[in-house]
């Protein structure tokens, strides 16, 4: 397959995953509303919001970094997705997984937040700064168990290539990492709670106390871009987790079902628990999940 066809297919799969990610956001909003006894917004509400935000007639900018913040963020989202094979064994949906490994993907997960931090910082709003500080602190904390879990996988499978990790999990449900290396999965799933920023780790966007966290100053199409990225990024993370721990997917339907189930884990916790303070969240991540991650490595080293 030539590079151009590959690129085209990658963008098609990116489009699909964006739509799926946004629908997922809508479904989750609906679930949250039903749990709270409300009817909730329609499932397609995220799409309307994005259209509306992009249809705003004015937008305010505070400088070049402010422009680049959402660009970095969406680059992080797309970059994360680009190097993950969405569907194992498919010629069309394996993206650029041959060219990058799981460390590159982890870097991209971090990258978007950093870019956002720079952009939001230039906005000059104190609440942005608070949101950024909390976001980065929390991210550094949940990155520890996640990285340990990934290292454990590397020790287990002797590779960092995602496609090979998925290939090693083929052949029945019992060969998934979930069953071959449960400790790593536990550490990673707890890290995912922090990544998705639902309760109990939602203090970063804290819509009541500090308006909306880092994007306080972002308006109009900037906000539309950030919302789009939320869709892409959420879906990309779920696809990554599916590949690393749940045996990947061999067709589109399997991917959608699996990513939904993984995402639902974090939603389930989110509706049931109250919120951690930032320092408590950090303390939490650095205690049990980190220990579990270290254990997961130790088990394979011994």
């Amino acid at each position: 397959m030539s590079l151009v066809t590959k690129l085209i297919w990658t963008f098609i799969s990116l489009g699909i995953v964006t739509i799926w990610g946004l629908t997922l956001t809508g479904i989750v909003a609906k679930i949250f509303a039903r749990v709270q006894g409300r009817l909730g917004p329609p499932v397609w509400q995220p799409f309307i919001d994005i259209i509306k935000n992009n249809a705003k007639r004015t937008a305010v900018s505070h400088g070049i970094m402010f422009y680049l913040g959402p660009v970095f963020r969406i680059a992080g989202g797309i970059g994360t997705y680009m190097f993950i094979p969405a569907i194992y064994g498919s010629l069309y949906f394996s993206n650029f997984s041959v060219s990058g490994d799981v460390f590159l993907v982890m870097y991209f997960i971090f990258f978007g937040q950093l870019g956002m931090a720079l952009g939001a910082g230039e906005g000059g709003h104190p609440y942005s700064a608070i949101g950024v500080a909390r976001g980065l602190a929390q991210m550094t904390a949940f990155e520890v168990p996640f990285a340990l879990s990934v290292i454990s996988l590397a020790v287990q499978y002797h590779t960092l290539n995602i496609t090979e990790i998925v290939a090693a999990q083929q052949g029945g449900i019992l060969s998934w990492t979930l069953f071959t290396n449960p400790l790593a999965v536990i550490a990673a799933m707890i890290a995912m709670l922090g990544m998705n920023m639902y309760n109990p780790f939602s203090v970063v966007i804290a819509p009541q106390e500090t308006p909306i966290g880092p994007p306080t100053e972002y308006s109009a199409s900037f906000l539309g871009m950030l919302a789009t990225n939320r869709g892409i990024f959420n879906a990309a993370k779920m696809v990554l987790f599916m590949n690393l721990y749940f045996g990947g997917a061999t067709n589109l339907v399997e991917m959608i079902v699996k990513t939904f189930c993984i995402y639902f884990f974090s939603v389930f916790i989110g509706v049931a628990f109250p919120r951690f303070k930032t320092e408590d969240a950090i303390r939490f991540f650095l205690k049990v999940p980190t220990l579990v991650g270290i254990l997961a490595i130790a088990v394979f080293l011994i």
Binding site: P42, D49, Q208, E217
Partner: peptide
């Protein structure tokens, strides 16, 4: 915004910053 009248089903939501509100 709470359960009884729930305007979110009409696509409305409260927004804490003027930049993002309409």
């Amino acid at each position: 915004v709470t359960a009884r009248y729930d305007i979110s089903r009409l696509g409305m939501q409260p927004r804490p910053t003027p930049r993002q509100a309409s």
